[in-house]
Nucleic acid binder design. Structure first.
Length: 425
DNA sequence: TCTGGGGTCCTAGGACCC
DNA sequence: TCTGGGGTCCTAGGACCC
């Protein structure tokens, strides 16, 4: 039988900020999403004063005065780098590791011969904390879904002290299922939890007792797999070699809504350029692209519109100028005057590795000619050495109304020489 | 005044074919 | 009134995740 451990960093973004700014320790802290929009990470103290996940920043302002809540802009360069450090420590402990998200990692503990799994996990926790500064929790289960569930309880229960092992203590499984609200189960979101509630299914345990036909009809094949996993049947396996991405998106909300074509044009140009860098870093080419721009969905008093255009790319390409040209032509063809646009984006789709591209007689080879390649290498190299945006396409004015807000971002302590922390005597 | 961004998988329905 | 029955492929949209 497989033994899955889920290692999850506690309040990851807040923990990253605290590593480099210990003054945040013990205080209510939230990290805001892009554009300083809403809370995406909360310290325990912030949870205690009632900050809900996803709460818009403007609704938290009163807590700043009342409880000294600290709101940090997000610093993804820092979190990405800290994530790599945590993952590389975890990889040294287990024969198999799957990086599931920026702050979570599944380990396969099957075949690991240790006398006491809980004790071993405490050792892992302590090591990660000592080497990276990040606190983690560990849940152990016979399926990934049960490991997730155990992890959640490990975080909540003070008795667990950050580790809960449902494999060495099979009798605890039923208790754990009964203590987990159905909406907290991995794979059961708001919609499905609502359907369950109507049928009197309130806990994860209730869900395991539901009838397969009803589950399949209500929550589809995915829902049924989730329930199988809750019942202890391992459906999901450890995925140590993640497949190539199928799509890559670069989109942003604007600090202010804009009505002028030129403003949206500049935003789309910037997003296409950034998306191109991403697929080149992954070694992929795009076979098509989608460009969109939309009005502010929260302004019910204003006319709503979403502009959307799909552009095929033949041959498939990773070249910035070609992707920009395609995105702009899509924007131009679908453009409508008279709307206040609040968000736009570029999605690169049909991504493939040019090495294993399947071609027929009539499709051209992917666009990876030597000259284009050399140019892109030079551009990416300059940006890596001199900082993002050192070289680019099109001149985009700084301080344009569509550019995003980030009022209180921490320095890039680990990824920019200029931001290295300084120790003062 | 102010409400994120980036992904995956599944399903239903239409187009098209024999 | 009556007007097949399958297949496949593609797309849009909905659900979920972090």
């Amino acid at each position: 039988m497989a033994i899955f451990a889920l290692v999850d960093c506690n309040n990851f973004y807040v923990s990253c900020e605290r590593v480099f700014n210990p003054a945040l320790e013990g205080k209510p802290v939230v990290v805001l999403s892009n554009n300083d929009g809403c809370a995406v990470a909360r310290s325990a103290e912030a949870k205690a004063i009632g900050v809900p996940m996803g709460e818009p920043a403007f609704k938290l302002r009163h807590l700043v005065e009342r409880h000294g809540l600290i709101m940090q802009s997000s610093n993804y360069a820092l979190y990405g780098d800290m994530s790599e450090r945590v993952m590389s420590v975890l990889a040294t402990f287990a024969p198999g590791a799957e990086v599931y998200s920026i702050d979570e990692c599944f380990l396969d503990l099957d075949g690991l011969s240790v006398p006491d799994l809980t004790q071993w996990c405490q050792h892992v926790r302590a090591t990660v904390k000592r080497w990276t500064g990040i606190p983690v929790s560990v849940g152990i289960g016979g399926t990934k879904t049960l490991a997730k569930l155990a992890n959640r309880l490990a975080k909540k229960s003070p008795k667990a002290n950050g580790v809960l092992d449902l494999v060495s203590h099979p009798a605890w499984v039923e208790v754990a299922l009964k203590r987990t609200p159905v909406g907290e189960v991995w794979g059961i979101g708001r919609q499905y939890a609502g359907h369950c509630g109507v049928h009197g299914i309130l806990s994860a345990h209730d869900l395991t007792q539901a009838e397969d036909g009803w589950i399949r009809k209500t929550m589809g094949a995915v829902g049924l797999r989730t329930v199988m996993e809750l019942r202890g049947v391992a459906v999901h396996t450890l995925d140590t070699e993640p497949a190539d991405k199928q799509t890559t998106c670069c989109s942003r909300s604007f600090a202010e809504a804009v009505t002028l074509y030129d403003h949206v044009h500049d935003a789309v140009l910037t997003f296409a350029s950034r998306a191109a860098e991403k697929i080149r870093a992954d070694g992929l080419v795009a076979g098509a692209l989608q460009v969109f721009a939309q009005t502010d969905r929260f302004r019910r008093d204003q006319p709503q519109f979403t502009l959307n255009a799909m552009v095929r790319l033949s041959p498939a390409t990773d070249s910035t100028p070609r992707l920009i040209a395609a995105a702009i032509s899509g924007l131009h063809s679908a453009w409508r005057d008279g709307y206040a646009y609040k968000k736009a984006g570029v999605i690169l789709i049909d991504l493939v590795d040019p090495a294993n591209i399947a071609r027929d007689l009539f499709s051209p080879p992917p666009d990876t000619g030597a000259r284009a390649q050399a140019l892109m290498n030079a551009v990416d190299g300059l940006n890596n050495r001199m900082g993002k945006g050192a070289v680019g396409y099109g001149l985009v004015a700084k301080g344009a109304p569509w550019q995003m807000r980030c009022g209180n971002r921490s320095p890039s302590y680990t990824s920019d020489w200029m931001d290295l922390p300084v120790a003062k005597a």
